[in-house]
Amino acid sequence: MSASPALLITCEHGGNDVPPPYARLFTPWRDLLASHRGFDAGALETARGFATATGAPLFASTTTRLVVDLNRSVGRPGLFSEITRPLPARMREAILAAHYHPHRQAVAAAVADLLESGRPVLHIASHSFTPCLAGVTRHCDAGFLYDPKRSAERDFCGKWMQELACLDPDLILRRNSPYRGVADGLATALRRRFGERYLGIELEVSQRFALAGPEALSSVNEHLVLALLRALGRDTPCRAP
């Protein structure tokens, strides 16, 4: 990046709220709502930490992804869950109009406005993942998802990971894990729309920190924030002993 980027933070799966019109529909699904299927535990706290420390705008949703997944494209199987997929088309369209399109459109409009300043835009989407899926342990504490073909995204993730590893060498950091950075998602859609001046990075933090309690989550978030500030050139870079 030749110029310092304008920063934008989002959190698509920040809570497990059920809109009142669908409350009865979700009554039998309380356990699922509380699980990793219902929301990304800890992701909203991480996103708020980034926004507070950097002054970047934050766009977050606390509507459960089981109503509609804001990080999936319209027409993709994962857009609606097994709970809302059987609803009539008019009800699914109403869900999109009330909860999906407003978030996606607001983020896209913010990116467009920031690009008008002439600076590149760095979009960080805060997510989290379950440390064990289908009986398989995921050996990762934080995953940095990006498009490997985009050197600016790759290089920035490298700086961020380097600073984070210096702050906490015990963290297991992965590139494009536990998901691929070019898979269907909001960042992928925005890359297609805005081109090379848009940098989209999805941060995936293990939910083991959120499950361990506020202190553990706060600790890893402090390191994530400080490493981000250093990668952005807003704080003195870490020097490993």
Results as ranks from 00 to 15, higher is better:
Val68Thr: 13
Ser73Pro: 07
Pro57Ser: 11
Leu133Asp: 10
Pro148Leu: 08
Ser151Arg: 15
Ala41Ser: 14
Thr46Glu: 07
Gly118Glu: 12
Arg150Ile: 12
Ala108Gln: 11
Tyr22Ile: 00
Ile83Asp: 04
Leu44Met: 03
Met91Asn: 11
Phe26Leu: 02
Glu153Val: 08
Arg72Glu: 09
Ala43Met: 05
Tyr100Lys: 01
Asn16Ser: 11
Leu133Thr: 14
Arg119Val: 13
Arg104Leu: 08
His99Thr: 03
Glu82Arg: 15
Thr46Phe: 00
Leu66Glu: 08
Ala134Lys: 15
Ser81Asp: 12
Leu114Glu: 13
Ala94Arg: 14
Gly49Ile: 03
Ala112Trp: 05
Ala51Pro: 03
Arg150Met: 12
His103Phe: 13
Gly38Asp: 02
Ala108Ile: 08
Ser151Val: 15
Ala142Gly: 08
Asp155Ile: 14
Thr130Met: 03
Arg119Asp: 11
Ala112Thr: 06
Ala152Val: 14
Arg72Thr: 09
Ala23Phe: 00
Phe50Thr: 05
Gly118Tyr: 10
Arg90Ile: 10
Ala43Glu: 01
Gly135Pro: 02
Ala142Gln: 12
Arg104Val: 09
Asn16Thr: 06
Pro20Gln: 11
Asp147Ser: 08
Thr62Gln: 10
Ser81His: 13
Pro120His: 09
Arg104Met: 07
Asp40Asn: 06
His139Trp: 11
Arg24Gly: 06
Phe144Asn: 02
Thr27Arg: 15
Leu25Cys: 03
Ala106Leu: 09
Pro148Cys: 08
Asp147Ala: 14
Tyr100Arg: 02
Ala98Tyr: 00
Ala112Glu: 14
Phe26Arg: 05
Pro120Ile: 11
Lys149Cys: 09
Phe144Arg: 07
His36Asn: 11
Asp155Gly: 05
Leu115Pro: 01
Thr62His: 04
Gln105Met: 11
Thr84Phe: 01
Gly75Ser: 13
Leu70Cys: 12
Ser117Met: 09
Leu66Asp: 05
Leu79Arg: 10
Arg154Lys: 14
Thr64Asp: 02
His139Cys: 11
Met91Ala: 15
Leu32Glu: 15
Arg48Asp: 00
Ile83Pro: 02
Leu25Val: 03
Arg85Cys: 07
Val18Cys: 02
Ser151Gly: 06
Thr84Asn: 10
Leu66His: 06
Asp147Arg: 10
Cys132His: 08
Ala152Pro: 07
Ala53Pro: 01
Arg65Ile: 06
Leu87Asp: 07
Arg37Leu: 06
Ala51Thr: 08
Gly75Asp: 12
Ala94Lys: 13
Val111Pro: 02
Tyr22Arg: 04
Val67Glu: 01
Val68Asn: 02
His99Ala: 01
Leu25Asn: 07
Asp69Ile: 00
Phe39Lys: 10
Ala34Lys: 14
Asp17Trp: 00
Asp141Cys: 09
